[in-house]
Amino acid sequence: MPSMKSMMFRKCLAVAALAIMGAGTSTSASAGLTMDPPRARLVQATQPLQSTPGAESKPPAPAEPGTTGQRPHETPPQPARPDADAKDAGTKPALPPAPAEKTAPPIK
């Protein structure tokens, strides 16, 4: 049966070997990135735009309608505050109000 010292030595040796292998792998990967020729790292330009086939024979799009910049007279102004009936017709709260003993005191 191997002694405690020899088992510890083997474990430390295995850990050191794995650390050296990891460092070597990362070093070789970064060296491969820096050793690439610069032309391989350049981005290629986009192709020139081409017109749609048959664009000459299609009719042009209609012109946008002109706006006067004024408010239409048919629509009357709406009130800023809705009446009480409109408030009651709105959505109801999902939860009931909290009981009085669970509300926090007002912030000063």
Rank of each mutant, 00 (worst) to 15 (best):
R71T: 01
Q44G: 01
R41L: 14
A89W: 05
L18Q: 04
A80E: 11
P93D: 05
P48F: 12
K87Y: 13
T25N: 02
P77N: 08
T67P: 02
G69Q: 12
G90Q: 12
L33Q: 13
G66R: 08
Q50Y: 07
D83T: 01
A86Y: 06
M1F: 09
T25M: 12
P106Q: 10
K92I: 00
D83N: 13
T68A: 07
P106K: 08
A104C: 05
Q47M: 13
A55T: 02
A86E: 12
S51F: 15
Q78P: 07
S6C: 06
P77W: 08
G69S: 05
P105W: 13
G22F: 15
S3R: 12
P96C: 05
S28E: 06
M7D: 01
P59A: 02
G90Y: 14
L33C: 02
T68C: 11
P2L: 14
A31L: 15
R10P: 02
A55C: 04
A104R: 13
P106C: 08
P105L: 10
A80K: 14
S28I: 04
R39K: 05
D85K: 15
F9Y: 09
T25K: 11
S6W: 10
V43T: 01
E64P: 03
T103K: 13
P96V: 01
G66W: 07
T52F: 13
A80N: 07
S6D: 10
I20L: 15
E74C: 10
Q44A: 02
F9K: 10
E74K: 11
Q78M: 07
T75C: 07
F9P: 03
S30V: 00
K87I: 01
A89N: 06
T75W: 06
K102P: 02
A29M: 09
M35W: 10
M7I: 05
P106R: 12
V43I: 03
R71Q: 08
D88A: 15
P38G: 00
L18R: 06
Q50I: 09
